[in-house]
Structures are given as C-alpha cells and as structure tokens.
Write a protein that binds this DNA or RNA. Sequence first.
DNA 1: CGCCATGATTATAT
DNA 2: ATATAATCATGGCG
Length: 419
Amino acid sequence: MDEQTRMLQTLAGVNMAGHSVQGGMTLPPPHGHDGTDGDGRKQDIGDILHQIMTITDQSLDEAQAKKHALNCHRMKPALFSVLCEIKEKTGLSIRGAQEEDPPDPQLMRLDNMLLAEGVSGPEKGTGAAAAAAAAAASGGSSDNSIEHSDYRAKLSQIRQIYHTELEKYEQACNEFTTHVMNLLREQSRTRPISPKEIERMVGIIHRKFSSIQMQLKQSTCEAVMILRSRFLDARRKRRNFSKQATEILNEYFYSHLSNPYPSEEAKEELAKKCSITVSQVSNWFGNKRIRYKKNIGKFQEEANLYAAKTAVNAAHAVAAAVQNPSLFPFLGSSGSFNLPNSGDMYMNMQSLNGDSYQGAQVGANVQSQTGGYSDALGGNSLYSPHHLTANGGWHEAATPSSVTSPTEGPGSVNSDTSN
DNA sequence: CGCCATGATTATAT
DNA sequence: ATATAATCATGGCG
C-alpha cells in the first residue's frame, strides 16, 4: 500500500498547487510600468514570477482578493492574448502528445483473475452468511463444504475490503476530477483553456487513479493467491476415498463398462452413496476411464472381481425366478468357466443394470476376441476390452492388435509413472 | 526412502 | 460444457 499512499500524496500535491494557482494568479501592484519600458517590465515580470513562486504561501482569502484584483487589472486582456499566442505555439506539441492508451494487459490480467476468483464479480452475500449458506447448501456431503466455508469467509472478507477501497478510490477520483474541472473553468477566465485540454487533464487524472486501483487489484490478487495456496493446496491434500466408496464406484464402472459415463443424476446418486461430491465422482470416472484404457491388463483382475460382485447381485435378483443356485459355479470353486457363458452373463448383467447397450454387435465382438484375450491373459477372463472398439462413445483407443498384449511391461504406456 | 496408486488440477479438443 | 490426456502431489506400502 506504500505506493498507493505515495500516489495519493502526489495527487494531493497537484491539488494544492491547483488551488494556489487559482488564487495566486495575481499581477504585481501597478507601479513603475509607465517609466522607461525596459527595466520596468523586467521588474514587473520578476515580480510576477516571484509571486507565482510564492503563491503556496498565501492564504485562500488573500488569494481570492488577488484573483479579483487580477481580473480587474488593466493589463489582463493583454496578458490573455499573450497567453493565447504562446498557446498557439505550443499547441502543436500538446496535440502531438495525444495518446490513446490501449487497455493495459496487466490490468486486464488482474481483472480477469479477480473476476475468476469471484472477488469482483456479482455479490453473492457477505461474510459468514455466504459461508453458512454454502455449508448449508451441500448439506450431507459435509467434508468439502466445511473446508470451503472458511475459505469462502476469508475470500468474502477480501472481497469486501476490495470493494470498499475501490469505491473509495472511485469517489475520490470523481471528486478530484470535478474539482479540477471547476478549477480549469475558473482559470479559463484568465487564460485560454480548450475543452480538449480539460479532457486531457481528466484523462491524466483517471490514469493516475486507475494506476492506484491497479495497486489495489494487485494486492487483492496477492491476498487471494495466498489464501488459495493455503486452502486450496490444503484441499489438494489428497485423501483416499473410503473403501466402501471405491467399491460403489468400481461396481458402477465395471457394470457399465461398455459406457462408463454416468449421467448427471447417476453421478449425484453415486456421490450421495459415497459421501463425496459430484465433481469428485466426475474426477474419479475421468481418472478411471483413462487409466483403465491405458492399461487394461492391469485392471483385468479388478474387472473380474467386480464382475463377480455384480454377478452375485444379479444372481440374487435372478435366483428366485430361475431357481438355480449354482448359476455361477466359478464363484465357489476354482474351476474354470467357459467364455461364451461369461459373455452371456455379461449381457444379462447389462440388461439387469438397465443399460440400454446394443447387444448383437458386442456379442459378435465377444465371440471373435475373447479367445485371443483368454490366451494372452492365461484364461479365466470375464471381461475383455472389446468395449473400447465396439462402442462408439467409449473411445476406440485400444486397438485389438495392441490390446492383445496387455501384459506389456509397466511404464511402457503409462506416462503417469514417469513423474 | 523409493515406488506406485490415486485424487485433483491443468491443458486441450470436441 | 464435458471428455481426454498429461501432470502434479500426496498417501501408503515395503
């Protein structure tokens, strides 16, 4: 804030000077001007300069009086015309100094950041109220919101300070601008001032003030950054989901392997069941999809496990109707099972899970590919990665040729491990 | 401590 | 807006 203070003082200085000029533009007492021209005028000018140099020492009342004296001075019209002439000469340089400043990229950056952080955006309530609302809104999934409430409280604190200061500056700027404009209007009685000049002056003032505002924005950004690094990084401190949550997510994933893209509603339900947030569910599925796809071999075991789990569920559902408790003999014994069966079972599960996944094509894929997989994986593979190629939505990344050797060494595909 | 698993973030494409 | 892919950074195990 040092810089700001300094600038304010600078501006205050200008202000003072302006004040004084207004009052102090006085001609010396009319003496000696009718003598020999040369010396008398020099002395006049010397007096004027002296008075100009000492105007800040004069009181306002005094200055007011002198101003009146100046306006009535008989030399005034002459002085005015001289000033006009001088102005004419310097006009070019002033006109040449016209600059259309483009929007400062730094300022834009700061603005964008403040907006993104919700500091400069629309008001969303203040302080504790916002935090409480946030905490209440997400109700059950307390974990996240409680950590957030503190963050939000601090953020809105920053936000409040920011807005207060900004408003203060804006007000000061307007006040000062008005003042200067009045001043210039007043002065235009004694010296020529074009509207353009006033405009220019106003522009200068605004630039000054916006540079002060930039300081404010800068410090606000810094504060937010610090806050973020403290809270967000803390939040980034990863906590593994509970075993149960992972179970539920995996169950969903493997039972919708052909299209592991839970709808918004499904995500909400999973989030509720797992006591995590919807975005965490999205993260999880995003990570899971990419990691599954990247190294299918690694997930075979898991896939089988959850296939079995789901199969048990399916069995429970079907058992009553079918009256066949030994529907899945492999669950109890280590005996092998035939792949066509597993394919069928998979299809059954799909339909049981309400997955509206097309059947015929996948069936064909199962038939044509599972043999190769079971060979490569040493058999007993419930799932094959055919979904990747069979289903349009679940990307076709792994081509059969590359997939048929999913047992490749770790790290060859997985860039994740190269950190 | 090194390594891998894993949740979160970022960059990019659609 | 959502998905993928890459990457970051930590948790947890041996």
